[in-house]
């Protein structure tokens, strides 16, 4: 959810996803589609610089071996143990903070399902590893041209203008590894099922039921053929934007008669 305030003081709030946020959403979904439970838990924590012990707000689901990530936690840190709401990590925290977001998850999911186009690149993978790469790009279709708006009065001096439109997305899945073709098939099949529909619908995202088939085209790199499969699926995102705008408090109407004489009528306050 983003908010932008304009020079006239009006603020536009939008639910629109970004390419990065869409890819992140599908990273979780694709891991599940491939049978890898991300075990993703998002909670709050308190950290102390130099200490590997943190206190979490909610401990349910946190287990030893899970990856932990958050401000002040070095990358690659895992949970060594958890007792009550106190977790011991594999590396000391680098900052002292309270009530900051932390995630615990299954690192295998993020290793196996990666997001393309990181700013400074990312390490590659081995020829025997099954890895899926995701990229999300916004598309333009006739469906994205239409916009529906509803004006709802607020407090007599302002109204909320709610606008909804469709943002189409292309989700491209690029898979490497010995099982890439079958894993591409699995992604398409899994994303056509109810559980995926329900998870996406909660976010206002709906699959376009054109079930493209994966292509399989190994590529040569450094003297070896690397198995590779690609498939692209389309999704429609329901974007909702709202703008709080002032209402008219009065209006002046001027009637011009045929004989050029005019009559001014002040209707006065017509605040909604």
């Amino acid at each position: 959810m983003s908010s932008t305030t304009f020079p006239n003081g009006q603020t536009l709030t939008s639910s629109a996803q970004t390419p990065e946020s869409m890819a992140s959403l599908f990273q979780i979904l694709v891991a599940q589609a491939l049978g890898i439970d991300p075990q993703l838990i998002v909670t709050a924590m308190s950290t102390t610089a130099g200490s590997a012990v943190i206190t979490v707000a909610v401990a349910a689901g946190i287990a030893a071996g899970q990856q932990s990530a958050g401000a002040g936690i070095p990358a690659g840190t895992t949970v060594l143990s958890i007792t009550g709401n106190v977790a011991t990590l594999s590396q000391p925290c680098t900052a002292t903070a309270a009530d900051v977001a932390v995630t615990f998850s299954n690192a295998a999911a993020w290793y196996a399902v990666r997001i393309e186009w990181p700013q400074e690149g990312q390490p590659a993978w081995g020829i025997t590893e099954d890895i899926c790469f995701i990229r999300a790009t916004p598309a333009d279709t006739p469906f994205s041209q239409a916009r529906d708006s509803i004006d709802t009065p607020n407090d007599g001096v302002s109204l909320t203008k709610q606008t909804a439109y469709t943002q189409p997305w292309d989700l491209h899945f690029c898979l490497y590894g010995p099982n890439c073709a079958d894993r591409a098939r699995l992604i398409v099949s899994a994303l056509s099922l109810d559980w995926a529909h329900d998870a996406l619908a909660q976010l206002g995202i709906y699959v376009v039921p054109r079930w493209n088939r994966p292509t399989y085209a190994p590529e040569v790199f450094q003297g070896q053929w690397w198995p590779r499969a690609d498939v692209t699926l389309q999704f429609n995102e329901l974007v909702q934007e709202s703008l709080i705008a002032p209402t008219a408090l009065g209006i002046e109407v001027t009637l011009v008669k045929e004989n050029i004489l005019t009559t001014e009528i002040d209707i006065g306050s017509i605040a909604s």
Partner: peptide, 10 residues
């Protein structure tokens, strides 16, 4: 250095 986390390479 870094690692793969939810949301990509960190």
């Amino acid at each position: 250095r870094g690692s793969f986390v939810a949301g990509g390479w960190r």
